[in-house]
Each structure stands twice: as C-alpha cells, then as structure tokens.
C-alpha cells in the first residue's frame, strides 16, 4: 500500500504507523459525562468495511499526522491531508 503524504509525496506504507479512526474527537474533560465519553473514545471504535477516515503517522518521514481516506476492503487511498497545517 502507498500513502500520498502531502508533505513528502507518494510513499510506501512501511514508513507509516497506523492509529485508527480519525473521527474520534477528544471529549471536553469537564463535561458531566466526561468519563463515559472518554471511555467510548478510547475503547469503543468502529471497524467499518469500506471508506474510512483514519489517522496515520509518517514516522519515517515528516512526522506528520495524516487524515487518510481509505477503503478498508480494497486498500485504495482516496486522499491524505495533514491534520494540522504546517506552520512554516
């Protein structure tokens, strides 16, 4: 598999580390139900077949965290963007 890193270009998957669902948002810590929501964000993840927005880390490259839109069935990568714009 190859991932088009916006910073480094098209690179082999062996340069990246996988984290998982990019849709997980760190819950606001002071909410009344924070415990429940943090538990869900840490442990309860979807594992869909098909298109999935995922977080990948370009460990052997620019160290950028990417949001990769990927098909988990075909491994086709539709897009990859940096989660944080580089402040150059």
């Amino acid at each position: 598999m190859r991932i088009p890193c916006p910073f480094c270009g098209d690179r082999d998957v062996s340069e990246f580390a996988y984290l998982g669902d990019a849709g997980v948002v760190r819950p606001f810590p002071d909410a009344a139900d924070a415990g429940e929501r943090v538990f869900e964000s840490v442990y309860l993840r979807d594992n869909p077949r098909g298109r999935h927005a995922e977080l990948w880390y370009h460990a052997s490259g620019c160290r950028g965290w990417l949001r990769v839109d990927r098909d988990t069935a075909t491994h086709e990568v539709a897009s990859a963007v940096l989660t944080r714009a580089p402040s150059l």
Partner: peptide, 19 residues
C-alpha cells in the same frame, strides 16, 4: 520514538491550536 509519536499526535491532532 513512541513518545515522539505521542507528542506529535497531541500537537497535530488533539490540540492543533497550540503554537
């Protein structure tokens, strides 16, 4: 290396607003 990845995740994914 894992700490670096963890910190970059905090910086880029959790709190991209922090300078």
């Amino acid at each position: 290396a894992r700490v670096m990845q963890h910190l970059e995740h905090a910086r880029q994914v959790s709190w991209p607003d922090l300078d």
